[in-house]
Amino acid sequence: MECTGSKQGAFYVLEVTGRMDALTSQGFETECQGRLEAGDKRIVADLSGLEYISSAGLRSILSAAKRLKAAGGDLAFCGLSGIVSEVFTVSGFAKLLPVYATREEALARS
């Protein structure tokens, strides 16, 4: 799993690529924590380059989302497909967290 990011208006967009599995997904939480410490509280995670996610990835996402929310920010998602979309749906994460089809939509929210 790799994260690369850039500031886009009020949001910090994090492009997540590769696999979020038991061995790698902690990196997502660490990345979000780093952004939070740098002052970015509103993060959009673009998962269009993410090939795979397991429950370990969901735990990392949940932990990051809770931390951002506690700081007055939020964590939204876009670009889900394949098994990533399926896992978000069956786990209930698609209802729990703001999920958008495209990055444009995720950035257009207030």
Binding site: S54, S55, A56, L58, R59, L62, S63, A65, K66, K69, V87, V90, S91, G92, K95, L96, L97
Partner: peptide
């Protein structure tokens, strides 16, 4: 029920077996 729980109430465990 946890699947429908809000962000604050959501417990992280058990998700692997559920999937």
């Amino acid at each position: 029920a946890n699947l429908e729980a809000g962000l604050e109430a959501r417990a992280p465990g058990g998700m692997g077996l559920f999937l």
